[in-house]
Design a protein around this nucleic acid. Structure first.
Length: 584
RNA sequence: GGGGCCGUAGUUCAGUUGGUUAGAAUGCCUGACUGUCGAUCAGGAGGUCGCGAGUUCGAGCCUCGUCGGCCCCGCCA
């Protein structure tokens, strides 16, 4: 007998039909006489009825069924008696009187209930991921993710993009993230690398004339994990020729619009606002600001410099900055609450958190005495403070002030419920610096070394690299970076100058990226693109707390697959074939 | 590399100031029950308190170490 319907699809229109369902035994309710069993598959569940008056043998066998047995039944769909319908489920109007039943496999008692209403430790869930996937919420995010692939593919197909698969066995590029290396039996002592992104391949596709490329692609980075970072993750990767950033914005805004419409039924406004990097840092202390709420940073270096507060003065003198936040109603914070905020700021290196409470009597705190009345008024005015507010200041290097205040801002914003958690606010961050300083103060790419400088700052490449601006852009949603890209360098001479600025010798550059530089010799079109974090996007749309919830078989915090046990040791024979000896 | 929180029954957790026999809920097993839907009721089984040292008359609780989980800083072109 063949399955005729999915368990979650039956409705009152099926009443009277004989149906065959396959699925897992979910809940059962044995009333001594009648037994109800919910049969579940990926679509939902239906209620089976085993009535001893209807079929004594089936009723006896139903008694032996247990959680997660896999069964097939054939029976008649009937309307439930009045008063026993369940409006909470799509199938709540009907039930199935079972005529025939087969048990495909029995099941041991599962280590945790197949239900959403219990929180199970993630280590247990991952060990038994195949059971976890049976839980309705998990199943829903898998299905959601699957539907979203189709929306993305349809969109790019409709817009004349070409889907291309780039290699997974690739060449190591030691810049940037650590590579996963793959040894080769055919070339002993040599290694492929798994791509951190298909960056160079998609540029070569442009040089190959494909013009508009997209790919939904796995990327691999051997770095430490976070709630939103996995060693392998999925990107929506895009590249286009003969374009400006505006073309990228339009295409990606269109994609977001379609995804939100199809997946959430929500209309989002385009174009998205754009904000220069410097403005984002100054106003929010962060290159991916959450603009669902204000609570902006204000620089007070000019006021503090004039004050008698030695600590602030010396920080300004040594090139540091002083910036602050005005917390509405924060004057009511206890000493402990402020101390707690200070330790939150300390995570990002802030050595202290200065504060002033503002009441009808004026500003109050141990440092107010160092500020003249005029300076105090200037502070109040700078923050548009009102009685009852709390001013918080961090003074240090930019690299400490901005992250710590940004963190406090998000903390306070969440605590004071300053934003609607259901709102979605997109933002393009533009005008990035091409370089940032590495530990030794040398230039290192903000994005990657193929990002094109803006034409008007190009010539600072040799003289003042930190002044060079990039034709780069990030898309930020609710304070989380969901995508980033740039217009690429398409000229061999510019790419060479870029490598030179990064301290790559001609030989090194040739060895690592020679194939790209060579390609530039043969007519490279101007091009650019962007890559989107697919897992993050799904996570955000579903409001889930981490990326593992939207990955079917994720790794744990230590990048291990606990179910299958990977990574694992391999046979000596395998290593010998590869010419590898362990040195641990 | 560093910081924080956590680890007690299959699962989720409680466990007071260190005190004698470690609890609850749920799940599991047995029984009862003919309209339930996270069924209900009665009974039962179920523990290396992550592991190892130490302090103590006595440790789930205190100390040190260690292992594991999650979150964060660094890292993530």
């Amino acid at each position: 007998m063949k399955r005729t319907h999915y368990c979650g699809d039956l409705r009152s229109e099926h009443i009277g039909q004989t149906v065959t369902l396959c699925g897992w035994v979910w809940h059962w309710r044995d009333h001594g006489g009648v037994i109800f069993i919910d049969i579940r598959d990926r679509t939902g569940h239906s209620q089976l009825v085993f009535d001893p008056n209807h079929h004594q043998e089936n009723h006896r066998r139903a008694n032996l069924l247990r959680s997660e047995f896999v069964i097939e039944i054939t029976g008649q769909v009937r309307e439930r008696p009045e008063g026993t319908k369940n409006p909470n489920y799509g199938t709540g109007e009907i039930e199935i009187v079972v005529n025939e039943m087969a048990v495909f496999s029995e099941s041991e008692t599962p280590p945790f209930p197949i239900a959403d209403h219990v929180d199970i430790g993630e280590d247990v869930r991952l060990k038994y991921r195949y059971l976890d996937l049976r839980r309705p919420a998990m199943r829903e995010s898998v299905l959601f993710r699957s539907r979203c692939y189709h929306v993305v593919r349809n969109y790019f197909n409709a817009n004349e993009f070409i889907e291309v698969e780039t290699p997974v066995l690739s060449k190591s590029t030691p810049e940037g993230a650590r590579d996963f290396l793959v040894p080769s039996r055919v070339s002993p002592g040599e290694f492929y690398a798994l791509p951190q992104s298909p960056q160079i391949y998609k540029q070569l596709c442009m040089i190959g004339g494909l013009d508009r490329y997209f790919q939904i692609v796995k990327c691999y980075r051997d770095e430490d994990q976070r709630a939103d970072r996995q060693p392998e993750f999925t990107q929506i990767d895009v590249e286009m020729s003969f374009i400006t950033p505006e073309d990228i914005f339009a295409v990606m805004e269109g994609l977001m619009k379609v995804i939100w419409r199809e997946m959430k039924g929500v209309k989002i406004e385009t174009p998205f606002p754009r904000m220069p990097y410097d403005e984002a840092m100054a106003r929010f202390g962060c290159d991916r600001p959450d603009i669902r709420f204000a609570l902006e940073l204000k620089d007070i270096g000019d006021i503090a410099k004039e004050s008698d507060f030695q600590v602030f003065q010396s920080i300004v003198d040594s090139g540091g900055i002083i910036s602050g936040l005005c917390v509405k109603g924060g004057a009511a914070f206890s000493r402990k609450e402020i101390d707690d905020l200070a330790s939150e700021a300390a995570i990002y290196g802030a050595k202290g958190l200065a504060w002033m409470k503002y009441s009808e009597k004026g500003l109050e705190s141990s440092i107010v005495k160092f500020f003249s009345e005029g300076q105090q008024n200037a502070l109040i005015e700078r923050f548009a403070a009102e009685p009852g507010d709390l001013l918080l200041f961090v003074a240090d290097k930019k690299e400490i002030v901005y992250p710590s205040l940004s963190h406090l801002r998000l903390l306070i914003g969440a605590r004071q419920k300053l934003f609607d958690p259901a709102a979605d606010r997109f933002l393009w961050i533009v005008d990035w610096p091409l370089f940032e300083k590495d530990d030794n103060g040398n230039p290192t790419p903000s994005h990657h070394p193929f990002t094109s400088p803006t034409p008007d700052t190009l010539d600072f490449l040799e003289t003042d690299p930190f002044r060079v601006r990039a034709q780069a852009y990030d898309l930020v949603l609710n304070g989380i970076e969901i995508g980033g890209g740039s217009i690429r360098i398409h000229r061999r001479d510019v790419q060479s100058r870029m490598f030179k600025t990064l301290g790559l010798t001609e030989e090194k550059a040739q060895e690592r990226f020679g194939f790209l530089l060579d390609a530039f010799r043969y007519g490279a079109p101007p091009h650019g693109g962007i890559a989107f974090g697919y897992d993050r996007l799904i996570m955000l749309m579903l409001g889930l707390p981490n990326i593992r919830e939207v990955i079917v078989f994720p790794k744990n915090q230590r990048a291990q697959a606990v179910m299958e046990g990977a990574p694992s040791e391999v046979d000596e024979e395998q290593l010998r074939e590869l010419g590898i000896r362990k040195k641990l």
